[in-house]
Write a protein that binds this DNA or RNA. Structure first.
Lengths: 230, 230
DNA sequence: ACCATAATCTAAGGATCGTGAGACCATTGG
DNA sequence: CCAATGGTCTCACGATCCTTAGATTATGGT
């Protein structure tokens, strides 16, 4: 007669070991930074190293860990190796991690409030509103992420204006126009900082709710490639 | 004139460090087991140690880590200390972690398929259907989790039948009745195993979709406390 | 064939983590 | 007050991880 199988105890242990494997993958700031970077765009080891400020060799070593944890994949192209997240669900998980961090770690909440929270207490612009106002040419949209990430995917019609080039981007702008900036998502400092600077320059500016990944997840249209020459 | 603030680089570093703090908390199988256990019910250190099969001292030490990471809280009651998750969002995150593990780690997928996947390929019963059929007295509901977890919260009308006591639970049952078993959630082996055993005994049995935490999250009614004597 | 480039692999030192042992603290019941 | 119970703290040792350096591999260009 059928007995209760005894494996369950080992099963739980095995599962917990596997969950911990993923926990371990997120247990190092460098690896988290790599994952975050990869969630925005595929990149080579070299690019990643400079993006996260780690040595080339260490970057390679940590990418190996992420690969063994099944979170990223590599693709060889000539002499370069391009890494990418294995799956959109990895980015979603990272978003969950950020949310939990904000909720449970006071330090994170403080950092976010000081640096990222919508400046001036103004509501971020909703995606639907942005679409409408873009259609009516009422706003100029700035993608303030690094050029590479713009190239990997952006909101159609958005201009590529990395934060460091913001002043140049503002230069030729007609007066009275309103700028809408977006970046990597709710925990990214780029768009809030861009809005702050725009306003300091006397340009009306708001930021889009959340960032580009969320735009894509919402199923809204996405353009790929460099900006057409002006 | 307002400059672009330079903190952003440090900010990102600080945030990644904080995210990694949470990753680290999940980086040890014992800690994951403790969290999982705590997501079902508040418990004392002693209970937790025996529930997860770790030494008392080590359990205390790991709980400390979890406390420092802001994931659990402690409450003193006389000579005992009761631990609980700091927040429902911790349990939700754990669920996300399990889902990611299943998706990205082949080993997890294999374990789940071999041990947990709905036995006999039968669809699990949806929560709404269970409610209807309970109202019509068509089914008997078995909560097959440990007694403690039943006590901390269960589906109203469910009987407390820990897996080890399943045979006793089946004993007095009218013939032709159908059993619906539930447990901790989609990655818990208890209900699937209970269904398997019921069927081996010739009793019709299905399992509820997901488990008790999901039932609670769905806003459905919850009963608390021990079962009334039969 | 040879070199240059991009990346990985191997090895090693230092830092951190995991675990258990013993001392220590807090609460309760005599 | 003392003793008993439940839990934490401190310390120490082995295991693991992080990081870098040097050797090695894979690819492409000449």
């Amino acid at each position: 007669m059928a007995q209760i199988r005894k494996a369950p105890i080992d099963l739980e242990r095995s599962l917990h070991e596997q969950y911990a494997r993923l926990g371990r993958a997120m247990a190092n700031p460098g690896r988290v930074a790599l994952l975050e970077s990869l969630c925005q765009a595929e990149r080579t080891v070299e690019d990643l190293a400079s993006a996260v400020g780690m040595s080339f060799k260490n970057t390679s070593a940590q990418l190996r860990e992420l690969r063994l944890a099944g979170l990223v994949e590599a693709r060889r192209d000539g002499t370069r190796v391009h890494y990418r997240v294995a799956d959109e669900s990895v980015c979603a998980f990272l978003a969950d991690l950020r949310q939990l961090a904000r909720r449970r770690l006071a330090e994170v909440d403080r950092l976010v409030r000081d640096w990222i929270e919508p400046p001036g207490g103004l509501e971020p612009m909703r995606r639907a509103e942005l679409l409408e106002r873009m259609a009516r040419d009422e706003v100029v949209v700035f993608d303030v992420r690094p050029r590479e990430e713009y190239r990997a995917g952006h909101i159609p019609g958005a201009r590529c204006v990395p934060l460091e080039e913001l002043d140049a981007g503002l230069a030729g702008l007609p007066a009275e126009v309103e700028v809408v900036a977006y970046c990597r998502g709710p925990f990214c400092v780029l768009a809030p900082e861009a809005v702050r600077v725009c306003r300091a320059r006397g340009v009306r500016a708001r930021q889009l709710e959340e960032g580009f990944p969320e735009w894509r997840w919402a199923g809204l249209p996405v353009a790929i490639g460099a900006e057409a020459a002006a």
